[in-house]
Design a binder for these strands. Structure first.
Length: 118
DNA sequence: CGATTGACGTACG
DNA sequence: TCGTACGCCAATC
């Protein structure tokens, strides 16, 4: 905690907040969240924030967050290798070959959905 | 305290 | 089109 200032630590909370705002049947990418928070180049921090997504309450639907290719890169972090796919499928998101089907169609961009401009 | 890693993404050849 | 390099910042070794 000494290396992490409370103010900067809020970045993680923002990530969790945005992820929780993801509608059912939709997915987004780490970079999209990072860009929305103004940390476009810090996409890794989003992924690192998700690392604690299981530890926060209410739990964060991290399964709705995939990489830019729509690939379920973090599925291994859910425990069972098919847990993430199962959660997405339950949300109505089809997953095939560890990848989101119609990714562009189910893609939920916080920059647009949350209306950055008027 | 320095080096390495990591659920990413972009740039370059 | 594909592979490699680098940046980003925090946590871990």
């Amino acid at each position: 905690m000494s290396t992490t200032n409370p103010k900067l630590f809020n970045f993680f909370e923002d990530v969790y907040a945005v992820v929780r705002l993801i509608p059912k049947g939709r997915v987004t990418s780490y970079g999209a969240i990072a860009a929305y928070l103004g940390a476009k180049g810090s996409s890794r921090m989003v992924g690192w924030a998700m690392n604690g997504a299981h530890n926060v309450k209410p739990k964060v639907p991290a399964q709705r967050v995939v990489n830019r290719n729509g690939l379920l890169t973090g599925k291994h972090h859910f425990g069972p290798s098919d847990e993430m796919e199962k959660l997405l499928l339950k949300d109505g998101v089809k997953v095939e070959n560890d990848k989101v089907v119609n990714f562009a169609k189910v893609f939920w961009d916080p920059m647009v959905e949350l209306s950055i401009e008027d």
